[in-house]
Nucleic acid binder design. Sequence first.
DNA 1: TATGAATGAGGTTTCATTCAT
DNA 2: GATGAATGAAACCTCATTCAT
Lengths: 222, 222, 222, 222
Amino acid sequence: MVTPKKTAPGGKPAPGAKAAQGAKAAPAAGRRAELLATAAEVFAELGYNATTVRTIADRAGMLAGSLYYHFDSKESMADEILSAFLTDLWTGYQRIEEAELGPRETFEGLVTESFRQMERHRPAVVIYQKEARRLASQERFRYLSDSQERFQQLWTRTLERGVADGSFRSRLDVPVAYRFVRDTVWVAAVWFRPWGRKSAAEIAEQYTSMVLDGIATHPVAR
Amino acid sequence: MVTPKKTAPGGKPAPGAKAAQGAKAAPAAGRRAELLATAAEVFAELGYNATTVRTIADRAGMLAGSLYYHFDSKESMADEILSAFLTDLWTGYQRIEEAELGPRETFEGLVTESFRQMERHRPAVVIYQKEARRLASQERFRYLSDSQERFQQLWTRTLERGVADGSFRSRLDVPVAYRFVRDTVWVAAVWFRPWGRKSAAEIAEQYTSMVLDGIATHPVAR
Amino acid sequence: MVTPKKTAPGGKPAPGAKAAQGAKAAPAAGRRAELLATAAEVFAELGYNATTVRTIADRAGMLAGSLYYHFDSKESMADEILSAFLTDLWTGYQRIEEAELGPRETFEGLVTESFRQMERHRPAVVIYQKEARRLASQERFRYLSDSQERFQQLWTRTLERGVADGSFRSRLDVPVAYRFVRDTVWVAAVWFRPWGRKSAAEIAEQYTSMVLDGIATHPVAR
Amino acid sequence: MVTPKKTAPGGKPAPGAKAAQGAKAAPAAGRRAELLATAAEVFAELGYNATTVRTIADRAGMLAGSLYYHFDSKESMADEILSAFLTDLWTGYQRIEEAELGPRETFEGLVTESFRQMERHRPAVVIYQKEARRLASQERFRYLSDSQERFQQLWTRTLERGVADGSFRSRLDVPVAYRFVRDTVWVAAVWFRPWGRKSAAEIAEQYTSMVLDGIATHPVAR
DNA sequence: TATGAATGAGGTTTCATTCAT
DNA sequence: GATGAATGAAACCTCATTCAT
């Protein structure tokens, strides 16, 4: 009865938002999804501020004003893109948390899941990487800070468990290591353009190995 | 009317460009430097696009228009900030290159130098981190791409030497490792606000150790 | 495709324009009238300019575009609303004119008729009150100025007759009094929302009494 | 140090806002005042919504964007116009309240003061008349409702006192009479364009006489 | 009859920049 | 060196309107 706007996600990402996604690229999922994908690409490429609503529209083959039939504002596009990504991400992380693995396996699981989501939501990850801090100051994007905090707790706990049980180096500075890992993982989204040949799992394995074991050779155990 | 404008750097960062400025124009140069520092902070905090020339002026206690007595444009402020940083950075790197150390020592040297420059030019590093890709497409910022390329060569060479002489893991995927190291080092600038207690050298040591040896314990050599 | 559009009134309000519509097209005509009523309410509430075609459609439970099956344009809705009101109003006034009553009785008759129409066409009166001047400049709404002029003549004549025969104060400034009466009567439409308890006749009586006799007590005749 | 914007009035009108207004049309009072006067005229003429910021700028001989050097927004122009008017109005009313006159004299005083303010702030009065209801729903224009309420109390009290002491008709329906008086007075602003010949006091006298004593002759006292 | 999607003109606002003083 | 005022381009957004279905 009313226009389709404002279907945008509200606050925190709630798992299970999207129902039937059967095929590869949803065929009947509608213009909306296509437009969001387009917007996400442009945001990722040019940055949120530098992206004009007209650029998105051009890329989508319509006029700038027409976007407003589907979305409330440029901001709400970013909102939808980011919250869809975070919803999926946390759904994945939760599965790992619930598996109650050892620290090293949890570590590997989280990295792998991150890369898997990066594969699905690459532009969203880039946007998140670049804009989250700025956006998070707005009430509407509160969930970004919330997610950030949850993220920190999850990783910190994992690292601490690893230090405790001897999986990780005993002298590890956990807060620094947390940031190290966090940045290390997400920053990859920026240059992982066409990771055609390697699967997310392979890339994840490479990363995990570098982070856990370092890139140097180790003549003796420490 | 003689205006001090257009002192902005041109193409590649040429070390020592504004050496002979110390003596006479000291007060003017001082104001200029202050303004650049202010601008750099705001750019780093809000992002280049989101920063208005008025925000900078406000923070400097003047009106927006007044900035144009000192600088040609917003862009030229960014230009000066970035090129000053890169000039210093490459001066430092050059010293290391010339020392002709082994791969591991070169590695450590580069990381340490990076952190040292981060200490001096923190806002510039953040700006570089966030905006370089976007800006580099403009002729005026060509030196950003040039620097990027030089950077890549330097690191790649170092890593390859390390693989060759057995310092680094033999199965290391050098292109991936390069990006890993690059991101790993620079990204730190974003959250290293007031690294009060730890010196750049200490932080560098921590980072180097994580990257080279990993964060996991190593029961056996590999 | 046959569309029922363009039934809109043209120039001056001609009584009985859409008389022979009752029989067959009843349901269609019914919807149309409903929509006009809705539109009138919204126009009255928010003002013509501030009312969007979507607000009207929302309130009518349809989409904005759908309104254009029924009406040519937003303007033509206002047109129909206003001309329907004025048609009815002048039908009523004519009856009074033809009765050839004395000035005071004519005065009372006109006020009463005005309030009676206000009861039927309340939103239209509010719209008339607020927008007539602006709209009247368009050719299409010429009849608004025409009506205004007729109105002025009718009242002026009545007041002058009253001054002449001693019903009204001899020193009455007729042009000022005309405007006084005019505003006094119509402005009531704005706040007479749900005049539940009092009939139009009662309100009219109260008003007439105030205007004719004033609100003060009168120790002596003048 | 910062731009002159945001000098706009805050909430309730506080008396004594403007200091030295010596001459007729303030010579050095600045562009700001001129622009406000221009804006007020256009708002009054076309209505707030129908007035585009460009129309105002055209009339002021500048570009639309330039207005934003002086004002935050179109809305804030309306705000400043209305609150300046209400500040002056209430300053005037207060003097009358403090004089503690009888009901009839208070009545006359209030009407006269209203017309005097109408002379100074004619466009503002028209805007108030037409837009107050719509604007008042916004937090920023809360003071409009506040003023409305104060206004109602002031008049109601005066009318009641008059009924009590026999100055006004004993059967007077005070709420209705209040609205009658209110509308009667303010609505005059709309058509009092160039009241060259008559002073505010004369017009006020005419109005008072009509409202108090009516326009009819009175053969006997009632 | 109505919907869904789009158009296109135009509105408000922002902002880098200019320039006389 | 700095201010105050303005420019002009471009940004985001709104909305009446159209039209295939």
